[in-house]
């Protein structure tokens, strides 16, 4: 194992002809090759079963759809066209693909509201954890982590049971006499958003906590010393300090919400679809694979833009803090 040895920082320097320097450079090359070889099995598995197939998706999005699912090997931009537009079968009139647009819009809208709600609930929660003493902090953190690692489907199922018409929420409300008939919560956009908030909230709390944990509370004291109110301290001192955590948390909630499949399927019923469901539908029995591929790439493009935004902001913040 190469890493058992001291790294040779002699690097690739060659004071012209010295043999030793050349030997050092050769040793460096050997070490690099060794490290690549050691990484190779992981890279190969990922190439075969994660990254390589993504390339195939791109190719498929430019092919003609096959009659019984699958594709015909013929170049076509039909799939990309039909992401945004539909063509009337009879008049050939081109109109915006309403179904796709409304699903795309719902995906973005629900993901956005989920992120905002996660911030509203997550910020105080992270702050609460970060201000506990060391011992109980670990316990609270553990309590946030548990749902994060438990099965997403089961958590969605749990939400479903609670909000269904015969569920505990409606039962309690009826029992209290607040409502006469159960409110329809399940299979609405609101239910989907609740579900997303529920399953992704820990992803907001964890990075927020990580940035709050490092706050030097003497800065907060300084704020109060300079006559700031609690609100001022929160807005002018704490918030700027945890901004990287806010951005990270928002990205971590927004991205999986956008690509969500299980939650809208279970809580949205058949009607309140999101992008993930739309994509999956294209691969059902004899559907439109190229369209599914094009939609997948659209989703990934949005995700990449969000990630780039994050990277840019993160590096800005870092640059500012030195």
């Amino acid at each position: 194992m190469a890493e058992g040895k001291a790294a040779h920082p002699a690097a690739s320097h060659r004071p012209a002809s010295t043999f030793a320097a050349q030997a050092a450079a050769a040793a460096d090359r050997r070490e690099t090759r060794g490290r690549w070889l050691l990484s190779a099995p992981a890279l190969l598995i990922l190439l075969f079963a994660a990254i390589g197939p993504l390339v195939i998706v791109v190719i498929y999005s430019f092919l003609k759809k096959g009659g019984y699912g699958g594709v015909e090997w013929e170049f076509s931009t039909d799939a990309w066209f039909s992401v945004v537009f539909t063509k009337d079968i009879f008049s050939d009139a081109v109109t915006l693909a309403d179904a796709h647009m409304s699903i795309l819009w719902r995906s973005v809208k629900l993901s956005f509201f989920t992120t905002v709600m996660a911030l509203v609930f997550g910020f105080p929660t992270a702050y609460f954890i970060a201000t506990r003493n060391e011992k109980s902090r670990d316990l609270w953190l553990f309590l946030i982590t548990i749902p994060f690692w438990t099965n997403l489907l089961i958590r969605t199922f749990a939400v479903m049971e609670v909000i269904r018409n015969e569920g505990i929420v409606n039962s309690i409300l009826q029992g209290l006499g607040l409502i006469d008939a159960p409110i329809q919560i399940l299979f609405t956009d609101f239910a989907v958003m609740m579900g997303l908030l529920y399953v992704y909230l820990p992803l907001m709390v964890l990075p927020l906590y990580a940035s709050m944990e490092r706050i030097d509370f003497r800065l907060v004291e300084a704020g109060y010393d300079l006559y700031a109110t609690r609100w001022h301290v929160l807005r002018r001192v704490i918030f700027p300090l945890v901004k990287p955590g806010v951005i990270a948390g928002s990205i971590l909630v927004f991205i999986p919400s956008l690509g969500a499949y299980v939650t809208p399927r279970v809580l949205g019923g058949g009607r309140n679809l999101m992008l993930g469901n739309l994509i999956e539908m294209q691969f059902g029995q004899g559907r439109n694979w190229p369209l599914g591929a094009a939609l997948s790439i659209t989703l990934m493009a949005i995700v990449m833009i969000a990630l780039l935004f994050y990277v840019k902001n993160a590096s800005n913040t870092e640059a500012r803090h030195g």
């Binding site: 690549w36 990484s39 992981a42 890279l43 990922l46 190439l47 079963a49 994660a50 990254i51 390589g52 197939p53 993504l54 195939i56 998706v57 498929y60 699958g70 991205i255 999986p256 956008l258 690509g259 499949y261 992008l275 993930g276 994509i279 999956e280 691969f283 694979w289 599914g292 591929a293 997948s296 989703l299 990934m300 995700v303 990449m304 990630l307």
Partner: peptide
């Protein structure tokens, strides 16, 4: 290598799933 290894964390599951579906179908 870093980027390659962490890639599954960046791509939505549904996209990876679809990609594998297409590839494995072939």
């Amino acid at each position: 290598i870093y980027a390659f290894i962490n890639q599954p964390l960046m791509v939505p599951e549904i996209v990876t799933g679809v990609a594998l579906l297409i590839f494995f179908a072939a």
